[in-house]
Design a protein around this nucleic acid. Structure first.
Lengths: 217, 217
DNA sequence: GTCTATATAATGATAGAC
DNA sequence: GTCTATCATTATATAGAC
């Protein structure tokens, strides 16, 4: 509150609305939080909020876009195409990134709880979600296929790969909300454990470094 | 509408409120549906609805209770204790029941989308959910341990069993809402496939009928 | 850009007649 | 039990002054 020198002391209001909304949504859920609440939290008038956003759904969409951007920054090659998952990632590296992703999931916790309902109610958000999901599922599927070729995972058929990726996706998007219900909780490694229990049995014992796989344990 | 001979033409109104609410919730989500909408759909006055239910949350809780009752009917022994999962079930039988459960999940589709958010907003519902979940997780965990003892599943440690059961739980509760987002859809076997891809690799090749396990494929 | 003031509508909920 | 009537409250959204 001491600094606002830039030409656009402007846009800072918009950002404050977003961060206020995020905070309130995480606490009370999107259904219980009104634009008035958000404006109050941001320290502006309700009218001002409507100068920056058309309605509540637009705020939600923007927060979702922030989440997606952060997530793709986490997974992307860092290069030109932000949608491509690097095909040279090892399972351990993937699990490490998933652990980092847990922090993001926590930061946008309301999405874990409310997103499915919001998608059902807001076609615009649903369209955005579908587009993102399609790209990312494709990226992970490509990685899984690369792993299969290199013998990192077992030689399961394409349908199994597709199902596996989807199961992992569901767990990755939902584990936090389920964990919250239990009250007190383990660190972000709880999510990682759940993902690992799904992925791990598909990994070959040797990680693709030998031709003969023998049953482990 | 031709028959209402019983002394309580009474209670039928309550049931109509519940079925109307279920229908509207499944269509539009709990957030978008008000008690007024439900009353209109049920063909009664808003005031009358409040004769039968204290508020909207009470209707939701009742619908959740219906869902739970139906689910426990599906999984119970049929005997005295409805909470116990029969320990002699085979994996195939479990998957078969899961397929049946998919129909239930579809019937109460709004729960797949809204439940996590509702739990966060309604402590009473959350308490009920936790109690139910604890019993059922315990039941499935007991079954998994029985399987492990009989060699139906591999000899993984307790933590892995716990994580596996939780991962399956998450997928079972969420797959439908995720599938809905994609638009058109496969039958209820899509959910079964996702559950199978998680469970299947933990099964032993011989289902516990031999002492030596050899790697399959 | 931001505020104040306000319009409009919907919501949850109650009181009392039938 | 059920309805009609009604209320206080809240929400979204806009208009216009500053």
């Amino acid at each position: 509150m001491l600094r606002t020198p830039t030409t656009d002391g402007a846009r800072r209001t918009r950002d404050r609305v977003l961060s206020s909304a995020l905070e309130l949504f995480n606490e009370g859920g999107t259904a219980a939080v009104s634009t008035n609440h958000v404006a109050a939290q941001a320290g502006i008038s309700p009218g001002n909020l409507y100068y920056w956003f058309g309605d509540k759904d637009e705020i939600i969409r923007e927060l979702y876009a922030q989440f997606v951007a952060a997530y793709e920054r986490l997974w992307g090659t860092g290069g030109s195409d932000p949608d491509k998952v690097p095909l040279d990632l090892t399972p351990d590296e993937v699990l490490a990134r998933l652990a980092e992703g847990a922090a993001l999931t926590r930061r946008y916790a309301f999405l874990s709880r409310d997103l499915l309902g919001l998608l059902h109610a807001d076609p615009a958000l649903a369209a955005e979600y579908r587009a993102v999901r399609e790209r990312r599922i494709a990226g992970f599927t490509a990685l899984a296929h690369a792993w299969r070729t290199r013998g990192v995972i077992r030689r399961v058929d394409d349908q199994t790969v597709a199902d596996l990726v989807r199961a992992l996706w569901i767990v990755a998007e939902s584990w936090l909300a389920f964990a919250e219900i239990d009250g007190v909780h383990s660190g972000s490694d709880h999510g990682t454990r759940l993902l690992r229990v799904v992925l791990e049995p598909y990994l070959t014992p040797d990680g693709g470094n030998a031709d003969l796989a023998v049953d482990r344990r």
